[in-house]
Simulated assay, not measured.
Amino acid sequence: MSWKPEVEPKRGDLIEIDRTGYHHWAIYIGDGYVVHLAPESEVAGAGLYSLRSVISDHAMVKKEPLLEVVGNDEYRINNKYDGRFPPLPEDEIIARAKAEVGRVIAYNVLCQNCEHFVTRLRYGTAVSDQ
Rank of each mutant, 00 (worst) to 15 (best):
I17P: 15
N78G: 03
G12D: 11
C111L: 12
L88G: 04
R52E: 11
G12N: 09
K63Y: 03
E115T: 10
Y28Q: 06
E74G: 00
E100H: 07
Y75K: 01
W25A: 08
K98D: 08
Q112F: 05
A46Q: 10
N113I: 10
Y81F: 14
K63N: 02
R103D: 09
R52L: 13
Y123C: 06
N113W: 12
P39S: 05
A106G: 09
G30E: 02
Y123D: 05
E115H: 13
L48N: 15
L48D: 15
Y28F: 14
G30I: 00
P39D: 09
R52P: 02
A38D: 13
V101M: 13
V104L: 10
T125I: 12
M1A: 09
K80G: 11
H24P: 02
S56M: 12
G21R: 05
E68V: 00
S2E: 09
F85T: 01
Q112V: 01
R76L: 04
Y75H: 10
L66A: 08
E90A: 14
S56C: 14
P87T: 03
N78A: 10
E16P: 03
W3Y: 10
E6I: 07
L88A: 14
D18C: 03
H23K: 11
R76N: 04
V101A: 04
Y107F: 15
C111T: 15
